[in-house]
Design a protein around this nucleic acid. Structure first.
Length: 478
RNA sequence: GUCCCCAUCGUCUAGCCAGGUCCAGGACACCGGCCUUUCACGCCGGCAACACCGGUUCAAAUCCGGUUGGGGACGCCA
C-alpha cells in the first residue's frame, strides 16, 4: 500500500467534552497521518441519541480547532448515515452471514446469569442462529461468528494478537428499533471512508476480532490496527470526571497554550530517546508507532505546567500579547493600550506559568487602582520608610528622563547617599507600586508605569502609611 | 467469574527485540547551594526505580516460567 493513500480517522462520541485521552488519540492519528501525507477524517459517533448532544459536538470541534488538529474530511455524523449501515446489514443478511434473533432482553439476561454461575464467559447461546427466522417486532439482527478457529491481527503497537473465536458470541448488529450498533457502524463507516489505519485506545483491543469478523463476512479488506495504552488518573484508575480538569477546553481556560499541551500528550506513551521538547514539525517528523509504549500511564500535570511555562518564555511577545487578550478580559483588565500590554508581556513571560498568571501579573500596570497585599502592607509599608519614599519622589519628579537607565543611575546615587542597600528601598517601593511583594524588576515596573503613576502611587503609599499609624499606633518593633 | 493485556525513580520515560559498555540515563516534582532589588529565569549539586520468586547463562533490567499488583473486554453504550 502506498503511504500516500493512508487514511485515518478520529471518531469521538459526543457524550461529553473532549478529554485529554481523546485528544491524545486524535493527536497520534494526526501525527501519523501528517507524517505520511495521508488523509485525516473527523467522524462524530452520535448513534446513541439519548447520550449525544450538540453542545458536546461543539465542544469537541472547538477543542480540535484550538489544538490545531486539522482534519481533511468531515465531520461526518453517523446519525445521518443510516442508509450506509442498513445496506451493509442487508448484505450480511443476504449472504447468510447474519440472522434475525427473537430472543428478548430478559432471555439474554438469564443466559448471561447462567453462564456466570457456571464460571463461564457470559455470551449469547445461539438459540436463533439456525432457525431461519424472519424479521419481527422486537427482533434484532446478529452476526454469525465462526464457532471455532482463531482471529488474529498484527497490532502496530502491541504486536501480534490472536483470539479464539469461541470466546466471541454472535453480536447484535441491528437493534430492535432498527438502528445499527457500534461495531457495525464503525466497520461500515471505515469501509465506506476507506480507512487504512485504525489508531485508537487500548480498550478496543478486545473489540477488534469482532470487527475483523464483520470485514471478513463482508469480504472487505481489513485495516491495520494500532492500540494506544490508556491514560489513567493519578490514582491509576481509568480517567473519569472525578479526576477533575481533564477537558481540553478546561486547559485552554486555565491559560495553557495548545503546543505545550500537545507536547505533553505526545510524551505520554510515546518517546524519542531522552528528548522532552518538540516543535510541531519535529513531532510530525519523529513520531512513530514503534516508539509507543505498551503500558498505561498517568498524566503528569506538573510536567505540563513546566512545559507551558517554558513555551511561554520562548514565545514571541507579539504572539503572547494576542493570546493574553481573552484572559485580560475575563479579569476585567482589557486595555486598548497595546504598547503597555506588550511591554508587560515581555517582562512577565519569564515568571508566568500560565496565561492566567500572566494576566494577573499585568494587573499593576493595567488597573488604575491597586490593592496592597496584607502581608506586604504589614511588612514594608511602615513609618520608617516614609522619609525615604518622599525623598525619592522628589528626585523622581526632578529627573529629565524617566527611563530604566536614568532610574538606575538615580537609585545608585540615592542609595549611596543614604547608605542603604537596594533591597531596603525596593521592597517598600514594590508594594507601593504593585501592591505585591513579588513583581518584575523594580526598574522595569517603574518604566512601564511611567513617571506620573509612579509618583502618584508613592504619594498614596505615604498617605496610606500615615493613616495607618494614626489609626492604630505602631506596636513596638519585634 | 471468564478471556485478554501490562509491570524501570512519586510521575512521564530511555535502556529490553539483537543479554555484558547500567552498582540503570533523562525530564517533572521535591530538597540543598549559587546568582540576586522581590518573584521568577538560569546554573551547580542531591534524593529516588529494574514488583516478587524461580529458571536459562560465564553474565539478566534485558530471555523463559510462575506469583503478586494494575488495566481492559465480556451491553439492543461507544
Amino acid at each position: 500500500m502506498s503511504e500516500k493513500n493512508i487514511v485515518t480517522r478520529f471518531p469521538p462520541s459526543p457524550t461529553g467534552y473532549l478529554h485529554i485521552g481523546g485528544a491524545r488519540t486524535a493527536l497520534f492519528n494526526w501525527l501519523f497521518t501528517r507524517q505520511k501525507g495521508g488523509k485525516f477524517i473527523l467522524r462524530i459517533e452520535d448513534t446513541d441519541e439519548n447520550r449525544s448532544s450538540d453542545e458536546a459536538t461543539r465542544a469537541i470541534i472547538d477543542s480540535m480547532e484550538w489544538l490545531g488538529l486539522t482534519w481533511d474530511e468531515g465531520p461526518y455524523f453517523q446519525s445521518r448515515r443510516y442508509h450506509i449501515y442498513n445496506k451493509v446489514i442487508d448484505r450480511l443478511l443476504t449472504a447468510g452471514e447474519a440472522y434475525h434473533c427473537h430472543c428478548s432482553p430478559e432471555d439474554l439476561e438469564k443466559q448471561r446469569q447462567r453462564a456466570r454461575e457456571r464460571g463461564l464467559k457470559p455470551k449469547y447461546d445461539g438459540t436463533c442462529r439456525d432457525l431461519g427466522l424472519g424479521p419481527a417486532p422486537g427482533s434484532v439482527v446478529r452476526l454469525k461468528i465462526p464457532l471455532t478457529g482463531i482471529t488474529s491481527f498484527n497490532d502496530l503497537v502491541k504486536g501480534p494478537r490472536t483470539f479464539n473465536n469461541e470466546e466471541l458470541d454472535d453480536l447484535i448488529i441491528r437493534r430492535s428499533n432498527g438502528s445499527p450498533t457500534y461495531h457495525l457502524a464503525v466497520v461500515a463507516d471505515d469501509i465506506n471512508l476507506r480507512i487504512t489505519h485504525v489508531i485508537r485506545g487500548d480498550d478496543h483491543v478486545n473489540n477488534t476480532p469482532r470487527q475483523i469478523l464483520i470485514y471478513k463476512a463482508l469480504r472487505e479488506p481489513i485495516p491495520k490496527y494500532a492500540h494506544l495504552p490508556m491514560i489513567l488518573g493519578p490514582d491509576k484508575t481509568r480517567l473519569s470526571k472525578r479526576h477533575g480538569a481533564m477537558s481540553v477546553l478546561a486547559y485552554r481556560d486555565m491559560g495553557y497554550l495548545p503546543h505545550p499541551l500537545l507536547n505533553a500528550l505526545a510524551r505520554l506513551g510515546w518517546s524519542y530517546g531522552d528528548q522532552e521538547k518538540f516543535s510541531m514539525a519535529e513531532l510530525i517528523e519523529k513520531f512513530s508507532l514503534n516508539n509507543v509504549g505498551k503500558a498505561a500511564g498517568v498524566f503528569n500535570a506538573d510536567k505540563l505546567l513546566d512545559l507551558n511555562a517554558w513555551y511561554i518564555r520562548e514565545s514571541p511577545d507579539e504572539f503572547l500579547t494576542e493570546q493574553l487578550t481573552p484572559f485580560l478580559e475575563t479579569q476585567g483588565l482589557s486595555s486598548p493600550d497595546h504598547k503597555t500590554v506588550r511591554k508587560a508581556v515581555s517582562i512577565l513571560k519569564v515568571r508566568s506559568k500560565t496565561l492566567v498568571e500572566m494576566a494577573e501579573g499585568a494587573r499593576f500596570c493595567l488597573s488604575q487602582e491597586i490593592r496592597y497585599d496584607k502581608k506586604g502592607d504589614d511588612k514594608f509599608l511602615k513609618s520608617g520608610v516614609v522619609d525615604l519614599l518622599e525623598d525619592l519622589n522628589r528626585r523622581l519628579k526632578a529627573i529629565p528622563e524617566f527611563n530604566q537607565e536614568a532610574l538606575e543611575k538615580l537609585f545608585m546615587d540615592f542609595l549611596e547617599e543614604k547608605e542603604i542597600k537596594l533591597r531596603k528601598l525596593a521592597q517598600p517601593l514594590r508594594v507601593a507600586l504593585t501592591g505585591k511583594t513579588a513583581s518584575p524588576g523594580i526598574f522595569e515596573v517603574m518604566d512601564i508605569l511611567g513617571r506620573e503613576k509612579v509618583v502618584e502611587r508613592i504619594r498614596k503609599a505615604v498617605i496610606h502609611i500615615r493613616n495607618k499609624e494614626k489609626g492604630a499606633p505602631e506596636r513596638s518593633e519585634a
